[in-house]
Structures are given as C-alpha cells and as structure tokens.
C-alpha cells in the first residue's frame, strides 16, 4: 500500500486461498457450535418437557467461569469446562428442584420464570464483572490445510459437539438411558414402575445446564464476554431444537450443521443480513411441512 507506515500493511497472502472452501468449513464449525448449545436444551425439552429460557444464562455462566480462570492464570480449557460444568450443574439442580418441578405443568409460568432467572443472572453478572465486554486470548488457529484455516475453537466445538451428541445417542440406546427415554415417552408409566420421576427431571435439568455452561466455556475465547451474551445462543438453540424434534438426537446435530452452512454461505454469497432471514425462512418452511420437527416420519400436519 502506498504511503503506509506500519508493519504488515502490505503483507502478501492476506486472503484465503479458497474463500468458498473456507466459508464451507467455517459453516460446519458454526453449525456444530449451534448443536453444542442446543443439546442441553433438547434434553430439557424432551425429558422435563418445558421451554427453558434460562438456557442462555448458563452459557454465559460458563463463559465467565472460563474468563475468571484465565484471568487468574489458569488458561487450560479443560479446567474451565470442568469448573463450569460443576457450577452450572449445581445451579441447574437447584433451579430444577426449587422452581421448574413445582410449576412444570404451567407452561407460561415456566417460560416467564426461567426468563426472569435469565434476566436476574444478567444483572448479577453485570454487578460482579461489570457491563463492559471481556475477552480471552484466542490462540493461534490449529492448522492451515490447503489454504483453509482450521479455527481452533471451531474444531474443538465440532469435536465436543460430536462427542456429546454421540454420547447422548449411545446413552439413550442403552439400559442406562432407559429412564430418560421412558420419562420422555410417558412419565406416568415411568412413575408406575418405581422410577423417581421428579428426581430424574431435576437431575436432567442440572445436566442440561452443565452442557450449556460447557458450550459457553469452550466458545468463550472466540467471543466477547458480556452479561447478555447468552441471548443469541438461546434463540439459535431454540430454533434448532424446535426444528429438529426430540426423537432422534443425531437429527439435531445434522440440522444444526445444515443451518450453520446455510447461514454462512448465504452471508458470503448474498449479504450477512440475509443469513438470519434465510435461516428463519427455512425453519418456518420446515415447521409448516413437519410441525413436530424433522424427526417425525412423513408429514404430520395438524389438519
């Protein structure tokens, strides 16, 4: 660049060798991060059968745990993930037992109450860490393959998401996961065979909250950490869960990856403002065709 007086201004090789390939790879990673955020929500919707609007708050909690550890010199993501999971599980069990279970049959109360908890958490986070954005060192990309950058946290969220969804799918196909499956299908029968349905519900709520916090802790370095950072993941998770349905866990993963690809490719080829519009349009279309979600076999419209 003529007249430049700073290092690196005219550095060659500034652009990706294959931008479209980069966009596709990033799209897969973005979708995997949607799946990571949505997995816990799907568990709550499937087993506890409530729409939990505090899910984003647990995502934020995980990110702040990662920040606190990083600012104290503990930059190990595993430590952040472990701490975030433990704290969020404890909070989740408390919330599930003390609030969600008693009002579970009143869907509006659950929605308003969980939203209230989310706002309360945002205020608490603002009081504890301030309203200003906080940031963690991103680290270098994992690798550059044929001119395509493999973003560190993209790869990690992809692998963790894959592991989580695979693990959940495996669990539900084994005797250990039978109580979850049975409660999801018919909790009266589950209760009649001696299962402590209430306990399983709040433990599930705790586990799902822990999953959200793990997602937050893992994605924190790639984001700006603020008290309201959980709002966008909450909406995206809801979109993924509602559209995928709860019957097959892998559907959630593939739909999330599909939506990530759609979001990124449309933003690249059309305009970024189109990505959200198209994403919502596709979801609307999906729900019109399959109101119970992708997992249902054949059309299942209400008329």
């Amino acid at each position: 660049m003529p007249g430049s007086s700073f290092p690196g201004a005219d550095a060659p090789g500034d652009t990706a060798v294959n931008p479209l390939a980069q966009v596709l790879v990033d799209g897969i990673f973005t979708g995997a991060s949607y799946a990571l955020m949505a997995a816990g929500l799907a568990l709550i919707l499937g087993v506890v059968k409530v729409v939990n609007l505090s899910h984003g708050a647990f995502f934020t909690l995980g990110a702040y745990v990662a920040y606190v550890l990083d600012s104290r010199g503990v930059g190990n993501p595993l430590a952040a993930v472990f701490m975030a999971a433990v704290i969020a599980f404890a909070f989740g069990v408390f919330l599930g037992k003390s609030f969600i279970n008693p009002v579970r049959s009143h869907s509006f109360s659950v929605a308003v109450g969980s939203l209230g908890f989310a706002i309360l958490f945002e205020q608490a986070a603002q009081m504890l860490w301030g309203p200003h954005p906080l940031s963690i060192d991103l680290g270098a990309p994992l690798a550059v393959v044929d001119g395509v950058t493999l973003r560190r946290w993209g790869v990690i969220s992809f692998l963790v998401s894959l592991g989580l969804v695979g693990g959940l799918s495996h669990l539900l196909s084994r005797p250990l996961g039978l109580p979850l499956k049975l409660i999801a299908e018919d909790e009266e029968i589950a209760g009649s065979v001696g299962m402590d349905v209430e306990k399983i519900r709040y433990l599930t709520f705790g586990a799902a909250s822990a999953v959200a916090a793990v997602a937050g802790a893992l994605l924190a370095p790639a984001m700006a950490i603020t008290p309201t950072m959980g709002r966008v993941p909450l909406i995206l998770s809801l979109i993924v869960v509602i559209a995928s349905g709860m019957e097959k866990v892998w559907n959630l993963f593939f739909l999330a990856v599909g939506l990530g690809l759609l979001s990124n490719v449309s933003a690249y080829l059309l305009a970024p403002s189109w990505s959200y519009v198209l994403l919502l349009a596709v979801i609307c279309l999906l729900l019109v065709l399959r109101p119970s979600g992708l997992a249902t076999v054949g059309p299942s419209r209400d008329y």
Partner: peptide
Amino acid sequence: FYSPRNPAFEPVAVAAAA
C-alpha cells in the same frame, strides 16, 4: 452489515479479506 441476532462473522471476515 451483519445482523446483531446472528452475526455470521466468519463469512464476512473471509469476504472482507478476499
């Protein structure tokens, strides 16, 4: 101009650099 609801940063960053 990205949507604050789904910022889709990666493709914008790729396109801007390209």
